[in-house]
Amino acid sequence: MLKVYLFIQYKYYKHVYPPDFAYYIPNSIYEAVDFLGRYDNARPLAGGQSLLPMLKLRLLNVDYIVDLNPLKELDYVSLNKDYMEIGALTRYYEVLKSSIVNEKLPLLSMVIRKVGDMQVRNMGTIAGSLANADPASDTCAVTLVFDADIVTTSSSGNRVIKARDFFKGPFTTALAKDEIVTAIRYPILEGYKFNFVKVVRRAGDYPLVSVAVAVKLKDGVIEDLRLGYAGVSQTPYRPFEVEKSFIGKSLKDSIEDIVSKVVEGVNPPSDTRGSSSYRKEVMRNVTRKALREVMG
C-alpha cells in the first residue's frame, strides 16, 4: 500500500494509469541484473504493492520494468543453523503461513501480520518493502531490529549488506543500479523477549509511529536491547547508541530513561497524521508501553 507524499503527488494526481514502459521477463537472476545494469530507468518488479501504486500516480520515471516474478527459485523460506533465510519473492502471506517463521521469528510474524491488508500481503514481499525503503515501513524497521543480512546479486556477483548499512534515506538504499535483493537472512534471536506496538490513524494505513522491540534480559538486567521505529525519521530508525548505553542496567529502572533518550536523535515528519512533536510524544509513549509489556 502506498504512502503518498502530498507535495510530490499534486503535480500528478490526475493519473491512475501507469505510463508506458518496456517490459522484460528474465530467465535468470543474472539476466535480470544484467538488464538492470544496461538500461537506464529500469526497475525490478516483485509483488508490486509499492511500485505499482507509484507508477499509477506517475510518481516514478520508469522506462523498463524487469519482472522478477517468473524467478521461482527466489520463493522459499529455509531455516539454517542460526538464521532464517527468506527468498526475495516469498510473499508476506507465505511468510505468515510458515510455521518455522512463527516459531523462530515471532517478532517478524508479529510485525508483518499488520502490514497493509490481507490482499496486499498476498502479493507483497519483504524484499520489495526493503528495496522500496519507505521510512514508514514496519518491515524495514523490524529488519533493522534483527540487523538482518540482506543478500543481493548484481552483475559483479553476490554480496551481503547489513540492514544497518542498507537504508540510506527516504526511498533510498545501498543497492547499486544493477543490484537486487535476493534473500534476507534473519538471525534467530534466542532468549529474547519481543514486542511490537503500532499506532495507526486508520487500519491498513502506514504507522504514525511503530516500535519493534527485542530485549534480552538476565535477572531483569539488560544484556541486549534493540528498538526499531517506523514513521519517525528519514529512514527506519534504531537508536544504537541509546540501546548500548543501557546494557548492564535494570530494564525496570531504565524504562523512563530509555523513553526520554530515544527521541533525542530524531526529527519526525509532520503530515496529515500528526505533527513532528506529536509523533515524538507518541514515540515516547509506545516505547514505554512496549517495554512495560515486555517485562510482563
Binding site: 502506498l2 503518498v4 502530498l6 507535495f7 494526481y13 486508520r202 487500519a203 491498513g204 494505513d205
Partner: peptide
C-alpha cells in the same frame, strides 16, 4: 492543493 487520495483522507474501515 487538496489531499486527493485515500492515503490522505481517512475513510473509516471495518476496524473503526
Amino acid at each position: 492543493a487538496l489531499g486527493v487520495t485515500y492515503a490522505d483522507y481517512f475513510i473509516p474501515t471495518m476496524v473503526e
